[in-house]
């Protein structure tokens, strides 16, 4: 159900990203899409836009990776899918086997943009 909702929500984004081979500019996730995604995947337990919870805030992530290159985006995308540890401390991030590559990329682009916005305040 959640999954179906997500797919419907992200459908335009998926299409844009799936289009090979050049990474055409993906359709941006709206704030509402992102909120739903964070809720459905449980991201909000550890992350928030400004607030420090268990992991870094989106603002901190955006500040750390300004002008992200495709390599950076890929690196971060892998973290969303498989989890990670060591970049921000000693608590590992959990993996998200339910998230598709396209979803991970879309949400990352939202984080980098929205986080950058928040960090300017």
């Amino acid at each position: 159900m959640t999954r179906r909702l997500l797919t419907t929500l992200l459908f335009p984004t998926l299409l844009a990203i799936a289009a090979p081979p050049a990474l055409s500019r993906p359709v941006a996730m709206t704030d509402a899409d992102a909120t739903r995604f964070f809720h459905a995947q449980g991201c909000k337990t550890c992350h928030a836009r400004d607030e420090l919870r268990i992991g870094p805030s989106y603002a901190m992530i955006a500040t750390r990776y300004p002008n992200a290159t495709p390599e950076t985006v890929e690196r971060l995308r892998l973290k969303v899918l498989y989890g990670g540890a060591g970049a921000w401390g000693t608590t590992p991030m959990i993996s998200h086997p339910d998230v598709s590559v396209a979803e991970a990329e879309a949400v990352l682009r939202w984080i980098l943009a929205a986080g950058a916005e928040a960090s300017k305040k």
Binding site: G83, A85, G86, T90, T91, P92, I94, S95
Partner: peptide, 15 residues
Amino acid sequence: ARMREYAEKIEAVSA
């Protein structure tokens, strides 16, 4: 299973 996976991640931190 997810908890076992996570515990291995804790042990894999290499900082």
